[in-house]
C-alpha cells in the first residue's frame, strides 16, 4: 500500500542550512549532508531544501550543496528557491536534485512548467502554490515569498499547473504558516479534490494531530514540516508511530545499513 510521506524542509543560505535542528545530535547543525543523513536514518521519506540565498553571486553554492548531499543520501531530494528558467531546472537536476520546486516564475511565465515537464519529465516538476484565504472558500495566490498578491484563484491555478505538466503540488497556506496551529484543511481539500496529482501540505504543523488532519480531512499525500522538527518538539519516529497507530499508512523507520558488495 502506498504510504503517506513526511517531508522535513530546510532553509538553505549559501549552501548551509540556516533553519536549525535541535533534536538530532550533530557536530555541525548547518551541514546539509550530515543533517540529511540523520533525517534519512530517522525515517524521513523525502527532503526539501529551500534556497533563500539573497546574493546572486552566492547562488551557485546551492549546486555544490545538492551534489554533496546526493552523493551520500539516497532518498528523494527536492530543491526550490530562485528557479527561473529551464536552465536553472537542468542545473538543479544535474547536481542531484530529483525534483525542482517552482513558485513565482511559474506564475510569471506558466510555460516554464511545460518546458520543465517536457524537458525533464513531470515527475520532477513541483509547482509551489502560496495561498491566502480571501473568502469563506476562496484563496488567492501570492508570489515573491508571499509579498505580492496576484489576483489569481489558488484552486484554479492548481488545476492549470497540473494541466501544464506539474507532477506534484506543494500547497502552503500563508495564513497558517509559522503559527503551528494546524494546516488550512479547507485549502488542502479544495485543491486535492480538484487535481489528480499528489499534493504536499505545508504551513502550520505544530502537533502530530495536525499531520493526521492534513491526510484525512485535507486529502494530502504528503506533509511538509519545518518548525515541528526544528524546535525539537517531535521527532520523525514519534510522529510516524502516532500516525500509524491512528491508521495512516506509514513507512516504518528502518534500522541498520545495507551489507556491502564484498
Amino acid at each position: 500500500m502506498l504510504t503517506r510521506r513526511i517531508i522535513p524542509c530546510f532553509d538553505v543560505d549559501q549552501g548551509r542550512v540556516v533553519k536549525g535542528v535541535s533534536f538530532v545530535e550533530l557536530r555541525d547543525a548547518g551541514d546539509p549532508v550530515e543533517l540529511a543523513a540523520q533525517y534519512d536514518s530517522q525515517g524521513a521519506d523525502e527532503l526539501v531544501f529551500l534556497d533563500i540565498t539573497a546574493s546572486s553571486d552566492a547562488r551557485t553554492s546551492v549546486y555544490d550543496m545538492i551534489r554533496s548531499t546526493a552523493d551520500q543520501v539516497f532518498i528523494p531530494l527536492t530543491v526550490g528557491g530562485g528557479v527561473r528558467t529551464p536552465q536553472d531546472v537542468r542545473l538543479m537536476l544535474e547536481s542531484g536534485a530529483d525534483k525542482v520546486s517552482i513558485n513565482t516564475a511559474a506564475i510569471q511565465r506558466p510555460e516554464l512548467i511545460e518546458e520543465g515537464a517536457k524537458g525533464f519529465g513531470s515527475q520532477c516538476i513541483v509547482v509551489a502554490v502560496d495561498a491566502k484565504r480571501v473568502g469563506p472558500e476562496k484563496w488567492e495566490v501570492f508570489i515573491h515569498g508571499g509579498r505580492t498578491p496576484t489576483g489569481i484563484d489558488a484552486v484554479q491555478w492548481a488545476r492549470e499547473a497540473t494541466e501544464r505538466g506539474a507532477g506534484e503540488l506543494l500547497v502552503t497556506s500563508m495564513d497558517t504558516d509559522g503559527h503551528q496551529d494546524g494546516y488550512d484543511l479547507g485549502l488542502l481539500r479544495a485543491i486535492s479534490d480538484s487535481v489528480e496529482v499528489p499534493i504536499i501540505a505545508s504551513g502550520g504543523a505544530g502537533t502530530p494531530e495536525h499531520l493526521y488532519d492534513a491526510f484525512t480531512e485535507g486529502g494530502a499525500d504528503a506533509v511538509l514540516a519545518a518548525s515541528i522538527f526544528h524546535f525539537g518538539k517531535y521527532d520523525i519516529p514519534t510522529l510516524k508511530q502516532y500516525l500509524a497507530d491512528r491508521g495512516i499508512p506509514i513507512r516504518p523507520v528502518e534500522t541498520g545499513t545495507e551489507t556491502p558488495v564484498s
Binding site: M1, R4, P198, D221
Partner: peptide, 28 residues
C-alpha cells in the same frame, strides 16, 4: 486515481531472486 503513483510502497516478491537477497519481503 492519484497519478503519478508517487512515494514509498511495498514490493511482494513472487520468486526468490538473488538480487533481492537479504531484502525482507514487503520492503519499501
Amino acid at each position: 486515481m492519484t497519478v503519478p503513483h508517487m512515494g514509498w510502497n511495498t514490493v511482494r516478491m513472487r520468486v526468490e531472486h538473488p538480487v533481492f537477497e537479504g531484502v525482507p519481503d514487503d520492503s519499501f
